Amino acid sequence: MITMIAAAGENNELGKDNDLLWHLPDDFKRFKELTTGHYIIMGRKTFETFPKPLPNRTHLVITRNNKYEKEGAVVVHSVEEAIAIAKADDDQPFIIGGGEIYEMALTYAEKIELTRVHGTFGADTFFPEFSRENWKLIESVAHPKDEKHKYSFTYETWVRK
């Protein structure tokens, strides 16, 4: 099952200038719990925001640059190639961004783990719109604003109908 995982604002904002718009420790913890032991598929810009590869995950990095190489990354040149490699060894690979990769991968996704951050933000990268005609919300868990979280948010799990 191909799963897209993201945190997005009320207007699908993901980030600005290759950075996140918020700091949500509990969401980072959930991301780690869900993706550990799996393939994670991302674009080059997303990969380069990490100080080092995330532990206990196989990083598939999509780039148009045929000469791109980075330690800790399996470099591929299309979403289709990334999915084929991931599905050969993992029944639950995750698409982790960025915006362009989410847009290209939406047609292949069977599940979306979306953290909806309750606020609107100035952004230059967005999560793609998806139709509620094609997707069903199967779980929604609210998380209030608190001393560690400047914004309230809701974990939403969507599955393709």
Rank of each mutant, 00 (worst) to 15 (best):
P93K: 05
S140D: 00
A88K: 15
G99M: 11
M1H: 09
F31H: 06
T154I: 02
R30G: 00
L21M: 01
K67N: 15
L14Y: 09
M104E: 15
P93Q: 06
F126K: 10
F47N: 07
F153E: 01
I2N: 01
D26Q: 12
E133A: 15
G122Y: 00
L106V: 11
M104F: 08
A86M: 06
A7W: 02
T49D: 07
L114Y: 04
F28D: 09
V61P: 05
N18P: 03
R116G: 00
K32I: 11
N11R: 13
A84H: 08
K29I: 02
H118K: 12
E33R: 15
T36N: 09
A105H: 09
S140M: 05
Q92C: 06
I101L: 12
Y39W: 13
K150V: 04
P55A: 05
D91E: 15
T115S: 15
I62H: 01
E113N: 04
E13H: 03
A105E: 09
G97A: 07
Y155S: 00
G119S: 04
M4Y: 07
D17F: 02
H143F: 14
Y68V: 06
R116H: 12
L34C: 04
A73G: 12
F50P: 09
V61W: 01
L54N: 14
Q92S: 13
M42D: 13
W158H: 07
I5H: 06
M1F: 05
